[in-house]
Nucleic acid binder design. Structure first.
Lengths: 334, 334
DNA sequence: CTGAAAGCGCTTACAG
DNA sequence: CTGAAAGCGCTTACAG
């Protein structure tokens, strides 16, 4: 906050009132061309930029969008951030990011809200329901990213086509590679992506008359280390498994580690498949068969929809982005 | 920006003036315990939170820190963001992120500055020199991350110990593995990390009387695809090479790809080493020998120093964070 | 098309 | 220890 020129300086120099300066800056009313020209010249000469806080206070809008997400980690977030960021910029907004680690019980004090943003993008369940409903009651613009709208609220959401993607993937394992002992590595509790992927897994088994075996499902939290631990346990328990659907690509990495350390060959002994198709997926050994999820596009879309909300433009209340099977080698192909 | 309670509501309810409310909220003057208690109760009952913009305007500070960086991509940024974010939160500040792709010539309009932040963290050369010097003239708090301070300015900076790290790495290749035909994959033009890594590379060669051969240096821009292209060219040119120092881990990935596709064995035919030790480095095949760079710590430190600047606390003008050799298998060990 | 003025919600000297 | 009041830099009815 350094001393700079204010709107009054610009007005004085152009020989007009500050109201007129504001009008040409915001194009909020017609100004005589000659007057406007003088104002613009004055702005340029003083290298004037409006003071954001003053603008926010007077105009009752901040021109910034907030993003609430968990600790930025894993390969998932860079593309997502890129998408959000791009969309926000294209619309002339700023981006305020708050990353939090939701701990159960503990009410999250989050610094983003009506006072410093015009709207919020909320990743999964990073905002607790009471705050969500408080903001919803205020009609505060929000978008849910990778989470569907809770009953009773009217917040648009953007999600992946998880179930169909997962089903296609698991059916590939069954029909093309003849795998029947397929294990599933679940994501974090209450994670909807994980829920629907598991549904797709179940549907695929059903469709081919393969019994669902709870012993073949473990929690890996979309986390490499947790996945490694879980797969290790299966291995020492001697659970018969000929394929692992890892829930996401990070977990697939952990599965690959555990299998390698145990001397199992992938895909000959055990096939491994992931979900998301993050950048490293093509670099695992063997290259990972997975499901492409448009991570960047989801971020982009969420931000675009939020800004439509802010502008009171009608918004698609529910967007499901298609996913696509990406066959590489860890499933047994090639 | 929804209608909420204001400081006046709180004051009325507590039977005091708004000045008193402000004082207990900001602990900016002693208030009688009983009065303070009533104010706090009033705040709690109304669930009052101060309006950020009003606070910024009146108080001449925004309580937010800006971060300017290139497009978020690669494995480098998540840890960096995590570090910055953590530090900013611990100090009760908000974080405004602007990611830009500096194009030469084109003056970058960036939306972060004196008006919406109290200070800026500037990654490498993401802010052009004219803007840097304008802000410097304003004594606007800034920290340079992975870039040293330009002559004539007094902006603290935080960097890695690149040269020593690179030298240790290359000497390992020479002394332990007897490699003498070591190629280097350079980072983006004007990137200081790359510059100093190359210096370390040169020093190591010198120290062992190995002639520097410009043919063995190519530009890979810290980018996997560019690295792959560069290494490919060496391969088709038949340039004799028994080791590649990739400049960073992303480039190492590209080198590994090119070598694998050409049927070269790593490390037997060609050793490959990187720099940074990003998360995927342990998962390449073979696991990557590299130099650990404290990416998250650098982000954390930069933010902490910036906030010290903002608070007018004396700040270390130059911080060089140590790096450490991480020996895995791509160099030929084990 | 343009200006004077109120007001956005705070902080901070200035008095007392 | 506390209040009345000015002021931060804008936007936006309201007049004209």
């Amino acid at each position: 906050m350094s001393s700079r020129f204010t709107i009054a300086d610009v007005a004085r120099r152009a020989g007009v009132s500050i109201a007129t300066v504001s009008r040409v800056l915001n194009q909020t009313a017609t100004v005589a061309p000659a007057t406007a020209e003088r104002v613009r010249a004055s702005v340029a000469e003083l290298n004037y930029t409006p003071h954001t806080a003053a603008r926010a206070l007077a105009g009752k809008k901040t021109n910034t969008v907030g993003l609430i997400l968990p600790a930025i980690s894993g390969a998932f977030f860079p593309p997502m951030l890129r998408g959000v960021e791009r969309s926000v910029r294209e619309n002339g907004f700023d981006l305020l990011i708050y990353s939090t680690q939701p701990r159960r019980g503990e009410p999250i004090h989050h610094p983003l809200g009506e006072h410093n943003t015009d709207g919020l993008i909320i990743f999964t369940n990073c905002l607790d329901d009471s705050e969500l409903s408080r903001l919803n009651d205020l009609s505060f613009p929000m978008i849910l990213l990778h989470r569907t709208t809770p009953a009773g609220m009217a917040i648009p959401s953007v999600v992946f086509e998880n179930k169909a993607g997962a089903r296609r993937l698991v059916e590939h394992l069954i029909t093309v590679h003849g795998r029947h002992q397929i294990a599933f590595l679940r994501g974090p509790a209450n994670n909807e992506d994980s829920y629907w992927r598991e549904e797709g897994y179940g549907e695929a088994l059903d469709a081919h008359d393969i019994a669902y075996d709870p012993a073949r499902v473990a929690v890996a939290n979309f986390d490499e280390a947790d996945a490694q631990t879980a797969v290790n346990r299966w291995l020492v328990d001697g659970l018969p498994i000929d394929a692992i659907f890892a829930g996401d690509d990070d977990a697939a990495l952990g599965a690959l580690n555990a299998l390698r350390q145990a001397g199992k060959r992938v895909p000959q002994d055990v096939a491994v498949v992931g979900f998301d198709d993050v950048p490293f997926a093509r670099h695992t050994v063997p290259p990972l068969t997975t499901v492409y999820a448009p991570i960047e596009e989801a971020g982009y879309t969420a931000a675009a929809h939020l800004i439509e909300c802010i502008r009171s433009t009608p918004v698609e209340p529910f967007t499901m982005l298609p996913t696509a099977l990406v066959v590489r080698q860890s499933c047994g192909c090639l």
